[in-house]
Design a binder for these strands. Structure first.
Lengths: 199, 199, 199, 199
DNA sequence: GATGAATGAGAATTCATTCAT
DNA sequence: TATGAATGAATTCTCATTCAT
């Protein structure tokens, strides 16, 4: 009679443990041994749930992006421009832990660079966020809150890039809250209101 | 007398060789052995020119940032807003090789995360670029080309973050040239002209 | 369940293997690789049982001293002067293998000179032997077998030094058995009987 | 016209430099590079004067024993028992530096254990010291200062062993001066005076 | 003779992965 | 299923020795 185990739960537990160790020791210094210890399972057990370290890493990246997704996503798909801008602003207000996590992201990123799976995961994530923003912008445009000349698709792409850049910057330099506020309100907000959008 | 060698040249050659291997194999998969082979020297020779792998890595990062600096810097310190925006736009037009280099930069970044030297190098780089932009903006402001309400210092910081975000994005997705053009002209250009700057 | 292994036994086996290689190749020429081969385990396995080469070395030194201790210790803690002298004599009668071991001891000694752990082990060993002799001498003195003027403590120290010297000498030159006998009986034995001990 | 160099002087200078580095860094941590630097010559130059590291080491051992010889030898080949004992005592009074040197001796010793040349050098040294003592004892015996039953040859060997043991011990534990004095006077002195020598 | 840059075999150590239990 | 002992290839770094200048 085999032990009944919730495979998905186990995978999830292992991934959480791995993330915890990464946070503490840094990615480069973390071995399968460390992960096994943190997850309170034997090293060999990891291989029952993940084919290889790379596989585990890909899952971790996946989970990491899931968490980032929550950071980026605005729950209320469409409301007012004001709430949307507030949502973007909130995205950029990182706790000390989140800043650490962003930096760790680059570590993980670096290590996985050659992994097609990882690149794939990243692309999916980007597209999801961008299309989420697109939906919101289309809705705001329908409601007449933003200029009709705005192209929701490319505008969303720009938003995503900028948020990425700001988030990266903040994770290293702890940008002033006022600067973030001003940037969002002035650059993003004003930009969306104008009539003279470029083609 | 022993062989006379241009030490600086040798260091430079080794760094170039290392960058070449990184480009091919990815940073994480590159060993000192690989670098030695690519540089056509013996493993031990590397240690005549660099104290350790970390030392070599730091130099590579340094060189990398030097190249990035040229990408970011606008030669004409002050001219017209038009030339400045053109310069920013040029910064974001990456060749295929440059895109690869930016991605590699994140790999190196990740690996070096715990290295104080690396963080230091990155900060210096950031500050240099930002203060370069600040000078230009101050100049443009003096010439009446941009709104008097603009704060050159914080504006430069924002510019840097945005360019970083765009560059990162582009290195993964090969952003449309038109989008870049539009972004620069619309967001940056228009923003700088407005009178109703936030505090 | 993984393979069940007697950890202590394994450590002991590895140490024995290491001692064997040292005997054959000399200490200086022995690498972890050699030890692993002799112990019929993989290199990495050594590190499951010992933290580092130094750790292994310390254990070896420890074991070595344990064996030496048996050589030096006189089982019958107190009896007659005659049996004590016989015990000392026996200590100095080295088999060919023991002579080799003594020489090897100096090799190990040399290599470990900077190791506090090793020095510590050596001091403990010395003190144990010396205090063992002290007890015996006190007992013999109580029984009136040796002069009341003898200071058991300093006398023991002298004994230890002399035995060390003789043992070292013998390991190199295979001292004549008669010389050992004469030395013990004459110098040690007579010295202990005399009344005119120095302060 | 080749540069005229005193080969013997150069060898001697290099050996002195090597000994100096050994004292500072310990034997195990000293490389040919270190020796070259300390001797103010290039690494390659060492190989003009010594065939190999082992060759250099043998010469160093040789020189080391020469210095020890001075420590052990009693200048006045024959005088009174009193001066002889005083000489032996002086041999054992080690300065802090000499104690260090004795310990270093074991380091060097260990490293050279497999070298026939080294063993040879050590044997020569021993025999020289022992025969030096033998001459003195014969002389003292002739003068009626010591018992006629003493066998100068084996007595000298015993002396040498004991001094070795004491010296080794002292280098580690800084034996009390009084203990040394007592040992020499009581064990050695008294022993030489007695009539009932063993065969 | 003298130099020191270059070499490359070899050292200690790590760690993803396997497999007998 | 789960374990963790065992593996051995791979890594960074050292250093005695060589040799072109």
């Amino acid at each position: 009679m085999p032990k009944i185990v919730d495979k998905a739960q186990m995978r999830s537990d292992i991934i959480d443990a791995a993330l915890r160790v990464f946070m503490q020791k840094g990615f480069g210094a973390t071995s399968m041994n460390d992960i096994a210890k943190e997850a309170h399972v034997a090293k060999g057990t990891l291989y029952l749930y993940f084919d290889s370290k790379e596989d585990l890493l890909n899952e971790i990246a996946h989970k990491h992006f899931e968490q980032l997704r929550h950071k980026f996503m605005c729950e209320t798909p469409c409301n007012t421009l004001k709430t949307f801008l507030a949502c973007l602003e909130k995205t950029l207000l990182l706790t000390k832990e989140e800043r650490h996590a962003v930096r760790m992201f680059f570590e993980v990123f670096g290590f996985n660079f050659e992994s097609r799976q990882f690149i794939h995961t990243y692309r999916i994530f980007s597209k999801d966020i961008i299309s989420g923003y697109t939906q919101i912008l289309e809705c705001l445009q329908k409601n007449g809150e933003i200029a009709s000349t705005v192209n929701p698709q490319s505008e969303s792409e720009i938003l995503f890039m900028m948020l990425n850049g700001m988030m990266m910057h903040e994770s290293f330099f702890t940008t002033n809250t006022m600067v973030i506020h001003a940037t969002i309100q002035h650059y993003i907000g004003k930009g969306l209101l104008q009539d003279d959008q470029p083609a």
